[in-house]
Lab assay of single mutants.
Amino acid sequence: TTLTVNTQTYTFTSEEEAREFARRYGAKTIRKTNGTWEVHG
């Protein structure tokens, strides 16, 4: 199964959650914005 996250942004309140998600789905960018963490595919 392949998950494609081209134009979607996922927002997390903790860096740990964001990094775990990025690691699991191979997202390329993690960015902190206004106190939340954004993961970009």
Rank of each mutant, 00 (worst) to 15 (best):
G41E: 06
G26Y: 03
K32G: 08
T11W: 08
A22I: 03
R31Y: 12
T13L: 13
R23V: 08
E38W: 04
A27G: 15
T4M: 07
R19A: 06
T2D: 12
E16P: 04
T29G: 05
E15Y: 15
T7K: 07
E16F: 07
T2N: 14
G35A: 03
T33G: 10
R23W: 06
Y25I: 15
Y10M: 07
T9Y: 13
E38N: 02
V5N: 13
Y25C: 10
V5E: 13
G35S: 04
R24V: 08
R31I: 14
N6D: 12
Y10W: 14
S14C: 07
V39W: 01
G35D: 07
V5Y: 08
T2F: 06
S14I: 04
K32E: 11
V39H: 01
Q8C: 10
V5G: 14
T11N: 06
L3N: 14
S14Y: 03
A27Y: 15
N34V: 03
R24A: 07
L3F: 06
E38R: 02
T1C: 14
Y10I: 07
Y25L: 10
A18L: 01
T29W: 12
H40S: 13
K32R: 07
G41S: 14
E16A: 12
T7L: 12
A27C: 14
E17Y: 02
E15F: 13
T36G: 14
R19Q: 08
R19F: 07
G41A: 14
H40F: 13
Y10T: 05
T4A: 14
G41I: 15
A18S: 00
R24Y: 05
H40W: 12
T29L: 15
R23N: 09
G41N: 09
Q8G: 10
T4H: 12
T7Y: 13
A22N: 01
I30E: 06
R23H: 09
I30C: 08
I30R: 04
T7Q: 11
T2E: 13
R31M: 10
V39Y: 01
A22D: 01
F12M: 00
K28P: 06
E17K: 05
I30H: 05
K32M: 11
Y10V: 08
T9S: 08
T9C: 13
T11C: 12
R23G: 06
L3H: 15
Q8P: 10
I30F: 05
F12A: 00
G41H: 13
K32P: 04
T7W: 11
T33V: 15
V5S: 13
E17D: 08
T1V: 09
E20S: 06
E20F: 03
E16V: 08
R19G: 03
L3Y: 05
Q8L: 11
E17T: 04
E17N: 03
I30K: 03
Q8A: 12
T1I: 10
F12E: 00
L3R: 02
E15M: 05
N6L: 15
T4S: 10
N34I: 02
R19K: 12
T4N: 14
L3M: 12
Q8W: 15
R24S: 05
H40L: 14
A22P: 00
T13Q: 10
Q8Y: 13
L3Q: 14
G41P: 13
F12I: 00
T4D: 15
A22M: 06
N6E: 13
W37T: 01
R31S: 09
G35T: 04
T36F: 13
E16Q: 10
T2H: 14
Q8R: 06
N34R: 02
W37K: 00
T7D: 08
A27P: 02
F12C: 07
Y25W: 08
T7A: 09
A22Q: 02
V5W: 09
E16K: 11
H40N: 08
G26N: 08
A27T: 06
V39S: 01
E17A: 09
T13D: 11
R23E: 12
E15D: 02
E20W: 04
T36E: 08
T33W: 08
L3I: 12
N34F: 02
T36I: 15
E20V: 04
T11F: 13
G41Q: 10
R31D: 04
T13N: 12
T9V: 15
R31W: 07
T4Q: 11
T4E: 13
T11Q: 08
E38P: 01
V39A: 02
T29A: 15
N34L: 03
Q8F: 12
E15A: 05
T29C: 14
T13S: 11
Q8S: 10
R31A: 08
T7M: 10
F12H: 00
I30L: 05
T11Y: 14
T36L: 15
N6R: 02
E38G: 02
T7V: 11
F12W: 01
Q8T: 12
R19Y: 09
H40I: 15
A22G: 03
N34S: 05
K32A: 09
T36Q: 11
R19C: 13
N34G: 06
S14D: 08
A18I: 00
A22W: 02
T36A: 09
K32Q: 11
F12Q: 00
R24G: 03
G26K: 05
E38I: 12
T1S: 13
S14R: 04
T7R: 05
K28V: 15
N34T: 02
S14W: 02
T9W: 15
A27L: 15
T7H: 11
F12L: 00
T11D: 02
Y25G: 02
T36R: 10
E20R: 06
A18V: 00
Y10K: 07
Q8M: 12
Y25N: 10
E16W: 10
A27S: 07
A27I: 12
E38M: 05
T29E: 12
T9E: 05
T29I: 15
T29R: 04
E20T: 05
T13P: 06
F21L: 01
H40T: 15
T29H: 11
R24D: 04
T13G: 09
G41V: 15
T4K: 09
E17F: 02
T13H: 11
F12Y: 01
K32T: 09
F21R: 01
R31P: 05
R24T: 07
T13K: 08
F12N: 00
V5H: 15
W37P: 01
E20L: 05
A22F: 03
L3T: 15
T7F: 12
Q8N: 11
K28R: 06
T36Y: 13
K32F: 15
N6P: 13
E38T: 07
E17S: 05
N6A: 13
Y10P: 04
Y10R: 06
K28I: 14
E15Q: 04
S14H: 04
Y10F: 10
L3G: 14
E20A: 09
T2M: 11
R19N: 09
T13E: 12
V39R: 00
A18C: 02
T1Q: 12
T9F: 12
T33Q: 11
S14F: 03
S14Q: 03
S14L: 04
N6G: 09
T29P: 10
E20G: 02
R24N: 05
V5P: 15
K28F: 09
E38A: 05
V39E: 00
V5K: 07
T36M: 14
V39P: 00
T29V: 15
F21C: 05
G35F: 02
E16H: 09
N34P: 02
G41F: 15
T7E: 08
F21N: 01
A27Q: 07
N34W: 01
Y10H: 10
W37E: 00
R23A: 10
E16Y: 08
R23D: 11
T4I: 13
Y25R: 06
A18M: 02
V5Q: 14
F21D: 00
G35V: 02
F12K: 00
R23M: 08
G41L: 15
A27W: 15
R31V: 12
N6W: 11
N34K: 03
T1E: 12
A18N: 00
T2G: 14
W37A: 00
T4F: 06
E16R: 08
T29S: 10
T7N: 09
R24F: 05
I30P: 03
W37M: 01
E15K: 03
W37Q: 00
T2Q: 14
T1F: 08
A18R: 00
T9P: 08
F12V: 01
N6S: 11
K28A: 11
G35E: 05
L3A: 14
T9L: 09
E16L: 08
T9G: 06
T2S: 14
T2P: 12
G35W: 01
T36H: 13
T11S: 09
N34Y: 02
V5T: 14
T33S: 13
R23S: 09
E16G: 05
K32D: 03
E15S: 02
E20I: 06
F21K: 01
G26A: 04
